[in-house]
Design a protein around this nucleic acid. Structure first.
Lengths: 123, 123
DNA sequence: TCGAAACATCGATGTTCGTCGATGTCTCAA
DNA sequence: TTGAGACATCGACGAACATCGATGTTTCGA
């Protein structure tokens, strides 16, 4: 799954003198579907509690965390934590592994890196 | 203005055997205020139309764009575009420069890069 | 001085989101 | 088979958000 970038590779406009209200080339810009997909991922990061969840999960010694580890430090109830975790999993950022009664979460390798590089995307 | 990262520099937990429901060290995780600030920036990116605005602005030949250039390709009315631009400016991602009747927008140099690196933030 | 054009702000409206109690599902030990 | 514990899902509710018409502000040419 490749993540679209703000500026598609190879976008190098030219011509046209400096003028206002002359919409730029209008071909190489981020397409609505790609924008929707990217926004969905950033939306997963757009909540303070989810960022703290990511921080805890990626800082945990075993690189794995279960729900009960999160509820207390975040001061959120279990359903709320579960809700946030689902959003992060759906966005492809966290990985869920159920072992017995517990569910362990870990950051998907490279997920945050590729999201971050979709912002820069010179190439 | 330094952007906080998911894992504060120097966080390297130790001790404690593998156990569930033993909240990790609980000191070096992203603090609520920092999380709020980071989330505010990601929230600015968490909308498809704002991502497309960024795409257009950063792809424009002159690296500057005015509101009227955005309204048509996005299929949004002027107040809506103005609203999105304000959010991006408030997040420190876009820079607004008023020249005469027009307002020109450009991407703040390094803003997206530093946001992106706050996701990785080894070091 | 006047009017038009570009943009910001306001107010209203429908939608999405975060939170949590209640409840359902699954697993394991007794 | 039963019961307890961990977690997911549902439903509800208030807050936050995206959109846009109406209106305000600023600038500039006539």
């Amino acid at each position: 799954m490749s993540i679209p970038t703000l500026i598609p590779a190879g976008a190098s406009p030219a011509e046209a003198p400096e003028l206002c209200c002359v919409p730029s080339q209008g071909e190489q810009i981020l397409q609505p579907e790609d924008a929707e997909l990217l926004a969905m991922r950033f939306k997963a990061l757009a909540d303070p509690n989810r960022l703290r969840i990511l921080s805890i999960v990626s800082a945990s010694k075993s690189a794995e965390t279960c729900v009960c580890d999160l509820s207390e430090p975040l001061d959120l109830k279990q359903p709320t934590v579960s809700h946030h975790l689902k959003i992060l999993v759906d966005a492809g950022i966290l990985h869920r592994e159920k072992r017995g009664v517990w569910a362990y979460f870990s950051v998907v390798p490279g997920a945050l890196e590729s999201l971050g590089s979709s912002l820069v995307a010179k190439k």
